[in-house]
Design a protein around this nucleic acid. Structure first.
Lengths: 355, 355
DNA sequence: GTTAGCACTCTCAACCTTAGAGTGCTAACC
DNA sequence: GGTTAGCACTCTAAGGTTGAGAGTGCTAAC
């Protein structure tokens, strides 16, 4: 079978160049690439027959396939993988685009809440794929401040500010015989802030034990404190809170999703928050840009799409993820460059907060 | 042309019954309905020929159409409209489902933040269409409490609690020569709470003028206060903050969206937050359940779908909207029943807050 | 007013057919 | 040895044809 093939190992330079050419051609045209088209459009300095031999070789190595006998070649996921690995010189985002993006971030309300959404939107429009982003989240959240705002005699809004800047909110009800008023709530909040400020949920739990049960305020503070600890540790336990996405239509418009069943599959992939959360978590752990191509995804609906994800934030403190999701036929080099840039920008912003 | 037609005005009972039958048959089968099928499946006590005459009459009135000569009838948007208007006895949600939904609402963390999301999810699974919901939002928000939490010497997190319970957050930077610490921030917050508590943004603006510029704390408070007023009035100005949706896949799975271009159109309809926000606003104004069928929507992408929307909340205070979005071929009576129930449930929950 | 009967129309799926694209192989060439 | 021209071969995609089936509208009889 292994006709004329030299080695099974690393490809020679010409084969690599042809693989690149096939991928770059296919990425832009979305149609199988024939030997003649390669010779015409890329200065390969050999004839189409030679190219055909190389293509056959690449196919035998599992880097390309045939949709059918008389069609051109299309890259396999393994082909894309090899291509991506070979990109040593990532194309940085053009300076003009860099400026535009910086400008957009300057426009937005200076609140970390908005940044990650903007990151997703920006990535979507810059790469013409779907942009993804999660808010920065710390592994062991520190409670920064606790606040109680009365609603009526039986209810209050409990507000917890975490060190990383995010806010948790819950409703507390005070049933039974003790109606509460704002002064009482203030006393409770003061007690709790003394005990829980700038510590983690785990340590907070032990600190609450010093509150006496026979004093009304302290007993109430204990109840509220326990709720606080529960909310914060629940938040800690959640791997990723929320994956915000934008520009899904960009992906759905790709011609490979012309059949509606494929389209639906991609759509459910985009909706598959559980798997996305999982990936995002693993990227946060890895601490560097990661690429998941087609079948490399364990999730079934994801097998037609690729993801380029990068973490941002401060390792010890709070980490989030930004990235793009597109068809496997994706402009990887551009996507990588853009994701790199945006994650770098987000790093700057977070650094600013912790400066 | 007007062969055999008795009146152009209201339909006689038989015609109404046949219109109902066509709609109910078409809603379940999604295929054009022929005269024979109607006779077979509905006890019409007349022959298919008679039914054909009535169908022709209904078509002349613009309530039904023909996809082509030899196909059965399908309802027009006007047909659906007449059908919907004729539903006087809305099917209430079955008691079992009512219980299940109440149970779900009991399970969720007691925070208004979660309710509207749950409402959308619940509506989606109960109607097998897309569920929509917005958080309750007041027209002229009252500031309830202002809080400043220091991040570093130059930055603080500004937290505004509104009377309706929602929270706005922003980052404040203190540039120039004045570094700030938490005691300073507390003083500023106290000053602002004295002046801005329980009033609207508009009135808040005037209250700030009494702050002196020559006192450092008061000058800072003024800056922060102005920011507060801006944030709250921006929030006021926004018609609807956020439309949460769930179960979009339910809609995309409908057979009428088998062609991928239609599917895409529906998808962009679902993403068309601007138009959704507009509708939601008009429902909030109308104060009662409203139905938008196909072409009744001015938005182009929406012409294949229908919406059933109902407001919830307290007219003077805070209003939100819940509802469903599905294909025009939708189980209207069931949808109306379910939306009614859920909006009623949300009313109960909001009432509880203001009790 | 209702109905049986029937000619008519249109779609949908299945089946051909053909043009074109691109291959793999062979034999000649450098 | 690698490279190339040439050519038979294969497969798809698009267009055209056909026949079955569904459902209609009309007419004439009840």
């Amino acid at each position: 079978m292994a006709r004329r093939r030299r080695t099974i190992g690393p490809l020679d330079l010409r084969a690599q160049a042809i693989l690149r050419a096939v991928i770059e051609e296919y990425v832009t045209t979305a149609t199988p690439v024939g030997s003649q088209a390669l010779v015409d459009r890329y200065s390969l300095r050999v004839s189409s027959a030679t190219v055909r031999n190389v293509l056959a070789e690449l196919e035998m190595n599992g880097l390309l396939t045939h949709p059918h006998t008389s069609a051109g070649r299309i890259p396999t996921d393994a082909g894309y993988r090899m291509y991506v690995e070979s990109i040593t010189d990532v194309v940085p985002l053009p300076a003009v685009e860099q400026l535009m993006i910086r400008h957009q971030f300057g426009q937005v309300e200076f609140a970390s809440e908005h940044w990650f959404r903007l990151a997703a939107t920006t990535l979507a429009s810059a790469t013409r794929a779907a942009g993804l982003a999660t808010p920065a989240k710390s592994r062991d959240a520190h409670i920064r401040r606790i606040d109680l705002v009365g609603i009526n005699e039986r209810m209050a809004s409990l507000i917890i500010v975490l060190r990383e800047g995010s806010i948790k909110q819950a409703l507390m009800t005070f049933d039974g015989d003790d109606a509460i008023d704002q002064p009482t709530l203030n006393k409770i909040a003061t007690l709790l802030n003394e005990r829980l400020s700038d510590i983690t949920a785990a340590r907070g739990a032990t600190r609450l034990s010093s509150l006496r049960e026979d004093d009304r305020i302290e007993a109430l503070a204990r109840r509220v404190g326990e709720r606080v600890v529960k909310i914060v540790s629940d938040y800690d336990a959640a791997a990723i809170e929320e994956v915000f996405s934008d520009g899904l239509l960009n992906v759905l418009e790709a011609p490979e999703f012309a059949q509606s069943d494929k389209l639906r599959r991609v759509f459910s992939a985009l909706e598959n928050r559980a798997y996305l959360g999982e990936l995002v978590g693993s990227v946060a752990d890895a601490g560097r840009i990661q690429i998941f191509i087609g079948h490399e995804n364990s999730s079934l609906e994801m097998q037609d799409v690729s993801l380029v994800l990068a973490p941002y934030g401060r390792p010890g403190r709070a980490i989030g993820v930004v990235g793009v999701l597109g068809p496997t036929r994706m402009l990887y080099s551009q996507a990588i460059g853009t994701v790199r840039f945006v994650s770098g920008l987000m790093n700057e912003l977070v650094d600013h907060l912790y400066a």
